[in-house]
């Protein structure tokens, strides 16, 4: 069993319009010292998953089922108070928008000290010293002075650093970063990605990075999970996903991005249509209305939901086409177009 093991996680929200199946049967695991990247478009359920793992849906309207094992302990059945005790100490989160996820009335230092003292029985002075240390570790200049600054006095990059300092202050074993660099400029993004990589090595934590940016995932992840409409459509090592992808949705994502590391293309190859509403997920394969190969399945794509099946050494794909056909398409039709561009 991995350090974090999620089995058949379902998070459904009842609404007036129907049941929203934000996460619908998701399983994955992360070891300490390893990074899992979760990729998907908006509404694919990636953020709901992360909040679910942290137990932040408890007490809300969400209907949650499945199992979440963290270091041998099951969290879905655990009480809200118990999970609250783990949050911050054992698992922590870095949110996308540091300005709206920090309290504007309190200094940055105050917010780090508060979190640290909840989990550690220390005096304010000791905690303050720890906060200064952490701010210095994440590369904030003059941490001794900056600890008394308010979030609005920080730039975007510094706020994200402070946020990381806060998340790491209790040395969590599981760290979830939800779009950690989306709000940042590209040069600052590069600094934060380097920082996250260095800190993970130092703290030996399990890291989950949630993002829509395939570049960010490629830089950080060991394993990658591609989500579509609340389900995992492809899972594998970074090499599997980038060099041997087998799901048409993954192909579509790769073809949609203009790339700096290749010769410029004449045209991008977008995926047609737009992501489905999670209230009315298409029957059968959820991706079938947008899939250019749906007719190859002889009608099965519209009626029968494909299963997530292993193709080779831990590489999982949810697709009706058989493996040789997918391999063939990738090698002969998709890859040449992506690479000769």
């Amino acid at each position: 069993m991995s350090f974090l093991d999620v089995k058949d996680l379902k998070i459904h929200f009842p609404t007036d319009d129907g049941l929203v199946k934000s996460v619908d049967g998701l399983s994955f695991g992360v070891e300490r010292g390893k990074t899992l990247g979760i990729v998907g478009e908006s509404g694919s359920g990636k953020s709901v998953t992360s909040l679910g793992v942290l137990g932040l849906h408890k007490g809300g309207p969400a209907k949650i089922s499945g199992e979440i094992w963290l270091d041998g302990e099951e969290l879905i059945g655990a009480s809200a108070e118990h999970v609250r005790g783990l949050r911050g100490k054992k698992m922590a989160m870095i949110f996308q928008d540091p300005l709206s996820s920090m309290h504007p009335y309190y200094t940055v230092g105050h917010q780090i000290i508060e979190a640290y003292r909840i989990h550690n029985d220390v005096t304010k002075q000791v905690a303050r010293k720890h906060a200064v240390d952490m701010l210095g570790r994440v590369g904030i200049p003059e941490p001794g002075r900056r600890v008394d600054s308010y979030p609005h006095e920080f730039s975007g990059g510094m706020r994200q650093r402070a946020m990381i300092a806060m998340a790491l202050s209790c040395d969590p074993e599981l760290l979830i970063a939800d779009e950690p660099t989306t709000a940042l400029d590209v040069t600052v993004q590069a600094q934060i990605l380097d920082l996250m990589r260095d800190l993970q090595r130092e703290f030996d934590s399990a890291l989950i990075v949630i993002t829509h940016d395939l570049g960010v995932v490629a830089e950080l992840s060991d394993d990658i999970l591609v989500m579509y409409a609340g389900k995992c459509v492809e899972y594998g090592s970074a090499d599997d996903i980038f060099y041997r992808p087998e799901h048409p949705y993954t192909w579509g994502l790769l073809g949609s991005m203009p790339r700096l590391d290749r010769e410029p293309t004449e045209r991008l190859m977008p995926i047609k249509g737009s992501p489905p509403s999670l209230i009315n997920v298409p029957p059968g394969c959820a991706f079938s209305p947008r899939c250019p190969y749906a007719e190859r399945t002889g009608g099965r794509a519209e009626t029968e939901a494909p299963l997530l099946a292993e193709t080779e050494g831990g590489h999982l794909v949810r697709c009706h086409m058989d493996r040789t056909e997918r391999r063939d398409l990738w090698e002969n039709e998709i890859k040449p177009v992506l690479e000769t561009q």
Partner: peptide, 27 residues
């Protein structure tokens, strides 16, 4: 140069071996 080298590349092998120009500080 710094901007171009800061863009994350969707190619895990190339990304790992790449020397990146690290700009310090913010704009």
């Amino acid at each position: 140069n710094a901007l171009l080298s800061a863009v994350p590349v969707p190619d895990p092998r190339a990304g790992r071996g790449r020397e990146r120009i690290r700009l310090t500080g913010d704009v």
